[in-house]
Simulated scan of single mutants.
Amino acid sequence: MAHEHPHTPHQGARHAPQGVADSGSQAEILDLDAEVLSEHIAAITAWLPVEAAPHEIVDLGCGTGAGTFVLLDRFPEAHVIAVDSSAEHLHRLREKACAEGVQERVHTVQADLDAADWPHLGTPDLVWASASMHHMADPHRTLRTVHDVLAPGGLFAVVELAGFPRFLPDDAPEDRPGLEERCHAAGERRHAEHMPHRGADWGPMLTAAGFAIEGERTLTVDIEGSRSAAVGRYALATLRRLRDSTADALSTDDLAALDRLLDTDSPHGILRRGDLAVRTERTVWAARR
């Protein structure tokens, strides 16, 4: 399972104009997400109510490793089994692990977590699932499986996002104010059909699966674009991806305005805006077996 929030499925997008034909890859967006939001991910791991430092951790739907590497930093004695359905993401994660000299502490497993039989994941002390649970076809079954995999007293951390991050002010762009919100509304209508558990309250579902909820916390993310050069690239890649999934649901004027924002050669393109920010929320549930 791949992480969710910056990437949507490619669905019959209209032909992209010159300058936006190459949509940002999912792996690129996940890497940018990790770079821009690293402090917030670290804050979540620091908050986790662990009773003792875990030695064995499973990262479900690890993507390219945003959570994996923060967990390795947070728990320096731990090993992580990183699980994802994407061979590309896992290859990228292994390359990063080698570059950071932690390859001996990471084991990657390619698996479809919707399958009836999971690969052997040991008996972890901590299972981490960031923006992956809402992708599951049967999340109730997944929760029960995680409960059975965990060591007695082990912790399950479910991290979910309120939705796609926002980057533009409400009155932007000048020729089509509110454009970003309309694009997100179109995307959310499609997500509601294919991913009904996005935005769910996972507390009752965790309790029903046999867990005891030990904490819930919502973190508000608001990062000014001036703090990181990656914010502009993150906005560009994310909105390109959003265009792919919503183009045929947008008005002609909105699509044209979005394409102007995504034109990297234009003086009015998103990379040249000085008013970008990253705004979103993340909620984490900490549940004990």
Rank of each mutant, 00 (worst) to 15 (best):
D253K: 13
S25M: 03
P9L: 04
H147I: 08
S132C: 14
L72C: 09
R227E: 13
P177K: 05
M1Q: 07
F69R: 12
R144W: 00
T8R: 14
D275A: 09
T246I: 11
G19W: 01
A192T: 10
L60N: 02
R240E: 15
A82T: 02
T207P: 01
R144N: 00
A129I: 12
R241D: 11
S266N: 08
F167E: 09
T142D: 00
R198N: 05
V284G: 05
L219H: 12
S85E: 05
A157E: 09
V149F: 01
A21E: 14
I213N: 06
A286N: 06
R141H: 02
E174F: 08
A66V: 11
G163V: 12
I81H: 08
E216Q: 15
M133D: 01
I29S: 10
A46P: 04
L258D: 11
D84K: 03
P124Q: 13
R166E: 11
A99P: 03
R94L: 11
I57T: 04
A21I: 07
L48S: 02
R189N: 11
A186L: 07
W285Q: 07
S245Y: 09
I270H: 01
L219S: 03
A235G: 05
A21N: 00
D112T: 12
I223Y: 04
D222R: 15
F164I: 07
E281D: 10
E180I: 06
R190V: 08
M133Q: 09
I57F: 00
G67K: 05
D84C: 04
A192W: 01
E28R: 15
D175G: 09
G269V: 08
T123V: 09
P9V: 02
A99C: 04
G225S: 07
G101D: 01
R176L: 07
L150T: 03
P6S: 10
H107V: 04
V149E: 09
D263M: 06
L113Q: 09
V149C: 14
G269R: 07
H194D: 00
E216N: 12
P196S: 10
A99R: 15
P173L: 11
G199Q: 05
F167R: 11
Q26D: 05
T142C: 15
L262A: 03
T108F: 02
D33L: 12
T220N: 13
G61W: 09
L255E: 02
L258H: 13
L219K: 00
P54E: 03
R141L: 06
R74P: 03
A249S: 14
V50E: 12
P6H: 14
D59R: 02
T218Q: 12
L121E: 03
Q110I: 12
R141Y: 00
S38L: 14
I29N: 03
C183T: 12
D117E: 15
L37F: 08
P139S: 08
A21L: 07
M136I: 04
E4Q: 13
S266D: 13
V70T: 13
A249E: 14
D84F: 00
F211L: 06
G232T: 10
E95M: 10
S245G: 13
R141A: 08
P6E: 04
R217E: 06
E181A: 15
T142P: 01
A131S: 14
G12A: 10
P152D: 09
R279C: 05
M195W: 10
I223G: 02
L30E: 11
E160D: 14
Q110W: 02
R243G: 05
D222V: 08
A116R: 15
D31K: 07
